[in-house]
């Protein structure tokens, strides 16, 4: 499968890094601003889908490999379940890091913009779910893309 026209490729070259940065911003600030792991992962995956659609099979093959995304998807889901199991001293999915102070930050109550290192285990869960969602949605695109052109794969 060939890529799309030169106009689309130029716009993609300019835009895709900004879309990826914006998606990771949504994932990292999930406990302070609207958004979270699922939304940010979807935004990053849409940047990868833009790359896959605008470029052809041959240029994308070295950059986005299905095996790497498969490994990161499984590790993201395992990290999420493991973070849930870490709080099993009280209940499953207990937020055992909230309000501990020190490295995990002291929460300022009331209306405030907030710090990045508050909320205990929630940012770690956001990152785990974000990695899982971005790898999973990119994997769907890559599998459909590879099934369309069986000859260029070799």
């Amino acid at each position: 499968m060939r890529g799309m026209s030169k106009i689309v490729r130029t716009i993609t070259n300019i835009l895709y890094s900004f879309i990826i940065i914006f998606g990771f911003y949504i994932i990292m600030h999930g406990h302070l601003t609207p958004g979270g792991g699922f939304q940010g992962g979807a935004v990053v995956a849409s940047a990868f889908a833009l790359l896959v659609v605008s470029y052809g099979a041959l240029k994308i093959k070295d950059m986005l490999k299905a095996k790497n995304f498969s490994v990161s998807e499984c590790s993201g889901l395992l990290a999420f379940i493991g973070l849930g199991f870490l709080g099993i001293g009280t209940v499953f999915f207990y937020n055992f890091l909230a309000g501990k102070g020190g490295l995990f930050g002291n929460v300022i109550y009331g209306i405030n913009p907030g710090d990045l290192n508050t909320a205990g285990v929630l940012p770690l869960m956001n990152i785990a779910v974000g990695i899982e969602v971005l790898s999973g949605l990119t994997l769907i695109i890559l599998y459909m893309f590879n099934a369309n052109n069986p000859k260029e794969e070799k």
Partner: peptide, 25 residues
Amino acid sequence: NETGANNVVTSIVFDYRGYDTLGEA
């Protein structure tokens, strides 16, 4: 107070209703 997250939606999705997010993943 209970979760320390300023975003109430995230504190519900990942803390109070964690099973829901696990099922979604």
